[in-house]
Design a protein around this nucleic acid. Structure first.
Length: 887
DNA sequence: CGTTCGCATGGGG
DNA sequence: CCCCCATGCGAAC
């Protein structure tokens, strides 16, 4: 294993242990090349002898050297013993609110499940993977809330600091550990400092991660680490130049078939090592830029881009594959997956023409160099292990080339992909095999089933008018969960989603959207938990007489509570973090993430953990059960309704959370005009400049954008009030009110919208930032959607809509179209607008046409809800036609 | 006449 | 203004 001497940590080995293993229990002399252990308080790393290093890396340090020491506890979730308290294992567990601890694996898992927040669901919870999540290369993990470091700076694809030999060496490290065990045992945690450290290192290109580097917290494992490292480090450039095979299929190896696993749903699972690959040729270089052929650049005049080109890949093509996906793809423990790029399928790509246009730079950077338009056959293995042979070729185009993969139809169909979905290209090392994965833009609601979606849907005829499918952006599944990344491999439910035929045009927007958030929380849930950031004073902004608090920082997730709003006395139950007792608090109380009895300002008698709990065990159980069932119900409802709601939620979140430091990429792309909107279009989408750009709007600003926003906000507020009133009335009479005539068929669900509204009023209305990840993505999506007059076909299910009676879209769509100078309605305004727009479009569809252009589309889309592939296509087509006609 | 092929066109960045 | 690329479109099959 290569020693990582280039890292600061390695260099700064504790002098005290200069000659001895740092492990006090060990008397061994440290070898010349000590193995790096845990991170010391000073920031250095313990240097261990080989034996201890190995033990440490296997995550057995604590159990080996101080098994009887105090501090051993069991994970509340999996029961695994975890040593708590020593520096070696300090990052291996998480403290639970109710007490107890969880191993990092479970903690992360649960965190994801419960909050949908940023803990990426990665199979291997190794220190490295954790770091990776935080590290610029988050793209791999689909991390939400990416750090400030631009993804592209990550060594993942472009860094060449590590040589292939090293990689190989590492790949075959004797420390290889069974992945499953590793997954089980490995634990790690996010350590701000460490993360930073690594990020920095990565950024600096000094990524020689020595083994020690990777296992600082003592719970690391090898194979995973190795793989991850390689994935991360694996530089395309490291490969040697490959010969352009002239006629044999490019790529080798026979796919192993383990489709089942690949299609597994949900949870991370380990895929058994696939049968040995048949051909072990080393194609590491196969996709490397190759100009050696000399003619590579001729034919069409323009030289192929050189290796530098890969550094210029547009964000939209950056692979966002998760390590989990990678793992699944690679399967073989000896293989390393190197994500190359991804592309959202256009209508043309997904159509039956069978030609997938490849981004030029990607094609030139990662695929074999071709000098003839005819190109070469290219073998590609899909996520299921099936192998396909496509013709990789190009067309002379102007003075350039247009690269395409021909014959992709069967593959696309087998994966049931359609326009808007994303195909990812990765390379499996050392085989050099090209792997094609995919990600559904969204998962369709069950109701939308159409099994042949893939084949019927988009054809070249599918007009771009297809709006962006909200779902495609938000990755919302019917259950209301967002970002169910279903890399073809384990896709959570390869259901067909016809819904997104759209998104075609928006793909760019979406593509630029770096961080798709992995939100596994219903939007209402998230909404309900949003809190203003602690210690931040809001700026009060008054819009139309309504005061909004604007926060500069992202909101935080507050503590979940159980609301008891059934009876006359509405209140909610919240559990103390310290004593776990449940306390009754006002119905409208918003709690911080951490709440204890001491904070119970509503009940002085129970403002201490010493105070007995009001609820009896029985009552508590009952309450919890009720709560659970209620949640289930909600979810069930949600599932029935389409993901549009989730989107809305996101949009709302975006509104609430504006102001948060959204990744620049996001903000920049945020407001691109919808492709359908051409010059002169004055719709609300088009009149807005990209967020973050343009002058900031003052509260008193009366520009069109602001006016629109205000109007919408006002309406929203009014609606909210109305809603509340209705709700109360409803409750008292326990009679469900029918939507008023003016209410749209689809209104926000009471439990959802109201929450949002409340939040708006209280804190975020104007713009507090939502948790970074949460917001950024949603906002983008929303915007994109918006631009697209996106109609989420799925939204159609009026009856299912949880939003009933919520929103008053009493807005005058027309006005929204007002032409305006491209001022930048500051983010919040914009977000607000977007959200509103989105909502309107989605919910109202044809009823309210805020944008004449979109009107027809809305109607059409609304009709296509059921995802009939055929229908979609046709409707889409119609829409597009009408659309174009208008133009 | 429906497809496929290959190039052209043009919007958008 | 240039490049990229989604799509159009005519010719060939």
């Amino acid at each position: 294993m290569a020693a990582s001497t280039s890292t600061g940590g390695a260099v700064a080995a504790p002098s005290a242990a200069a000659s001895k293993c740092y492990n006090a229990e060990c008397k061994e002399l440290r070898p010349d090349r000590p193995r790096k252990g845990w991170r010391l308080r000073a920031g250095d790393f313990a240097e261990l002898c080989d034996r201890c290093g190995s033990i440490y890396e296997e995550g057995k340090f604590c159990e080996t050297f101080h098994p009887n020491a105090s501090g051993w506890r069991c994970c509340e979730s999996c029961g695994k013993r975890v040593h708590c308290g020593c520096i070696v294992s300090s990052h291996a567990f998480a403290l639970l609110d109710p007490g107890g601890i969880e191993c990092i694996s479970c903690a992360r898992k649960n965190f994801n499940l419960n909050t949908g927040a940023a803990w990426p669901s990665v199979i291997y919870h190794t220190p490295l993977s954790d770091r990776l999540k935080e590290h610029p290369a988050k793209g791999w993990n689909q991390l939400a809330g990416s750090g400030p470091v631009p993804w592209r700076q990550a060594p993942t694809l472009f860094n060449t600091s590590v040589t292939r030999p090293e990689l190989q060496q590492r790949a075959s490290t004797p420390f290889e550990v069974d992945p499953i065990k590793v997954g089980d045992r490995r634990i790690a945690s996010l350590d701000g400092k460490r993360i930073e450290d690594y990020s920095e290192r990565f950024m600096n290109g000094i990524i020689k991660l020595g083994a020690a580097d990777k296992f600082e917290n003592g719970s690391a494992g090898h194979s995973i680490e190795e793989r991850l490292n390689q994935c991360i480090i694996n530089p395309q450039q490291s490969a040697s130049i490959k010969e352009e095979p002239s006629n044999s299929p490019f790529g080798l190896t026979v796919p192993y078939s383990s489709g089942n696993e690949l299609n597994g749903h949900g949870g991370p699972h380990f895929r058994p090592a696939p049968p040995p690959t048949l051909a072990k040729h080393f194609y590491g270089s196969m996709f490397v830029e190759n100009n050696s052929s000399g003619d590579g650049q001729t034919r069409n005049g323009r030289p192929r881009t050189d290796a530098r080109g890969r550094n210029n890949l547009l964000p939209r093509y950056w692979p966002r594959i998760t390590d989990q996906e990678l793992q699944q793809i690679s399967g073989d423990s000896n293989s390393v997956i190197t994500p190359l790029f991804e592309k959202m399928l256009s209508a043309s790509d997904a159509g039956k023409i069978g030609r997938l246009v490849l981004p030029k730079k990607c094609a030139e950077a990662y695929f074999p160099a071709i000098s003839q338009p005819e190109g070469l056959p290219l073998k590609v293995q899909d996520a299921k292990g099936s192998e396909w042979v496509f013709q990789f070729r190009f067309w002379p185009n102007n003075n350039s080339r247009m690269y395409v993969l021909e014959g992709v139809t069967p593959c696309i169909q087998s994966m049931q992909l359609q326009a808007g979905d994303i195909v990812t290209f990765s390379r499996l090392e050392p085989e050099g095999k090209l792997i094609m994965g995919f990600r559904k833009a969204s998962t369709a609601p069950p109701s939308d089933q159409d099994n042949e979606a893939a084949k019927t849907t988009n054809g070249p005829s599918v007009p771009d008018s297809e709006l962006a499918d909200p779902g495609s952006w938000s990755k919302v599944d019917k259950s209301g969960y967002i970002a169910k990344e279903a890399l073809g491999i384990k896709s959570t439910a390869p259901k067909k989603r016809k819904t997104n035929v759209l998104a075609l045009k928006s793909k760019r927007l979406r593509g630029d959207n770096e961080e798709l958030i992995e939100l596994k929380i219903t939007w209402e849930e998230a909404q309900g938990l949003l809190r203003p950031p602690p210690d931040h004073q809001p700026t009060i902004v008054v819009i139309e007489g309504f005061e909004f608090e604007e926060y500069e920082d992202a909101p935080v997730l507050g503590k979940p509570t159980i609301s008891m709003a059934n009876g006359p006395g509405k209140f909610q139950w919240v559990q103390c973090e310290d004593c776990s007792k449940w306390r009754k608090i006002p119905f409208d109380a918003l709690l911080p993430a951490r709440w204890t009895c001491a904070a119970n300002k509503w009940d002085s008698e129970r403002s201490s953990c010493m105070s007995p709990q009001e609820l009896t065990a029985e009552e508590l159980e009952d309450m919890l059960n009720t709560s659970t069932s209620a949640v289930s119900k909600k979810k069930a409802l949600k599932q029935e309704s389409d993901s549009a709601e989730a989107l809305e939620a996101l949009a709302n979140l975006a509104i609430l959370g504006e102001g948060e430091p959204v990744p620049s990429s996001l903000s920049s792309q945020a407001t691109t005009k919808h492709p359908r909107h051409k010059l002169g279009c004055t719709c609300i989408v088009c009149i807005q400049p990209p967020s973050g750009k343009g002058p900031k709007h003052k509260p008193t600003c009366t520009c069109n954008v602001c006016v629109t926003v205000k109007r919408r906000f006002r309406t929203l507020m009014m609606k909210r009030e109305k809603k509340q009133t209705e709700k109360e009335a409803e409750e008292s009479s326990s009679k469900k009110q029918q939507p008023t005539p003016q209410q749209l068929p689809e209104k926000p669900r009471e439990d959802e919208l109201p929450t949002q509204c409340n939040n708006s009023n209280n804190n975020d209305a104007s713009s507090s930032a939502v948790g970074g990840s949460v917001v950024s993505s949603p906002s983008q999506k929303k915007e994109e959607k918006e631009g697209c007059s996106d109609e989420d076909p799925r939204k159609a299910k009026p009856s299912d809509s949880p939003f009933k009676g919520q929103f008053d879209l009493n807005i005058q769509p027309d006005k929204e179209e007002e032409v305006s100078p491209r001022t930048d309605p500051s983010s919040m305004m914009k977000l607000l607008q977007d959200a509103t727009d989105k909502y309107i479009k989605q919910r109202l569809g044809p009823c309210l046409d805020q944008d004449t252009e979109e009107k027809p589309i809305n109607g059409v889309l609304a009709k296509t809800d059921r995802n009939e592939a055929g229908d979609d296509t046709s409707t889409a087509l119609q829409a597009s036609q009408s659309n174009s006609a208008e133009k």
